[in-house]
Design a protein around this nucleic acid. Structure first.
Lengths: 193, 193
DNA sequence: TTAGATATAGACAGACCTGTCTCACCACAA
DNA sequence: TTGTGGTGAGACAGGTCTGTCTATATCTAA
């Protein structure tokens, strides 16, 4: 409990590690590289994060929290469910068009840590379920819960697929067709069965 | 040019590497592990694949060819576009339910090799575009090319997202909602604008 | 000023990584 | 018997990996 903030260094490590993980992946980024880039001592890093896995989880949780904050702020700017979903897609389009876009870090984490019991895997799943739950809550205001859940799952899949397609280089097709398909999914969910 | 077949050993290496890559990832699987599991000499491996990257590309291409063969066989068993898409979704459901399912190796390759110029990245993109092109050709029989392309892109995104969701453990939701959303997408593509 | 926490540099261990190289082996031909 | 050419086993080089440890330096608060 000294110093300016309780964990300024810690946050600096998280930010640096995030930039490297995003660019090069988790396994391909060594601890030595992180401490060199962050310009800290190795022991400082190991005091805050006793193992690399814990650093990875911390990075993912920090990014997930940030994402959810942005999402909740966007939600307030639109009123209908369709408009809220549209703002989420707009957000994704801006992300895809960022010159530093490298795909979804959480999806990459799932790819590199395939064991469902691994803390990194679980952290990535938590983020995806957070997004799904948020979309579901939008939709529940305008349709029965069962329909809302199904539509939210479909929209989540669509967004994940669009992120992959954007990473493959086809941003325009990903965005345009994701928007069209999202409309079709929401329209389909409203239809009487 | 001795021995029985021109590349029995080579194929054995590819098969062994595939099993390991699938389970543990590309970077996390070492050459030593592959040659131990395949029970071959290191030089045999390096004669066929001068570098690890080339082995990875060979594995991806072998699996892509196999996938496309299965897809083309399935295509013959259905007549309408919607039925053909349905058989593709059925194929994916069987895949998801395989106890050895670990997600899409091509998506994992994109995650681990983020450089668009990297041969591994390109090999993964080729597979995705192959699937998209096949679905597009089904749809073109029943709608204008522009609509078919958009619908194929949306279906590809949906399938990729469903694969991710299945990897996260939610196979039932992934399959059910992907089928519903696929119907909505195809129906939407048929609608007059 | 002094105590205590926090950060520093960097050596070190032990394992693993990719990729190269040597040498023994073995089948077969002359 | 001797030669030849493909294959095997595995030592080796040089680098990187994670994680530990020591000894020194800096900063804050009492």
């Amino acid at each position: 409990m000294t110093s300016s903030s309780p964990s300024a260094k810690r946050q600096h490590v998280v930010d640096t590690a995030y930039a490297l993980f995003r660019r090069d992946g988790f396994h391909a980024t060594g601890i030595d590289r992180i401490i060199a880039e962050a310009d800290i001592a190795k022991m400082t890093m190991y005091r805050h994060f006793p193992a690399k896995d814990e650093l990875i989880v911390a990075v993912l949780e920090h990014r997930a929290a940030r994402f959810e904050r942005q999402l909740d702020r966007l939600r307030a700017t639109a009123d209908t469910a369709e408009a809220k979903i549209a703002t989420i897609l707009d957000w994704h389009e801006r992300w895809f068009r960022d010159p530093d876009f490298h795909g979804c870090l959480f999806a990459h984490a799932l790819a590199e840590f395939g064991d469902p019991d691994h803390p990194v895997f679980k952290a990535a799943v938590r983020q995806k379920n957070g997004l799904r739950a948020r979309m579901c809550s939008f939709l529940e205001a305008e349709m029965p819960p069962e329909r809302a859940e199904a539509a939210a799952a479909a929209l989540l899949m669509l967004i994940e697929g669009a992120t992959l397609m954007a990473q493959m280089g086809d941003v325009d097709a990903a965005v345009d067709n994701a928007r069209k398909a999202a409309s079709a999914i929401i329209a389909g969910a409203r239809l009487p069965r």
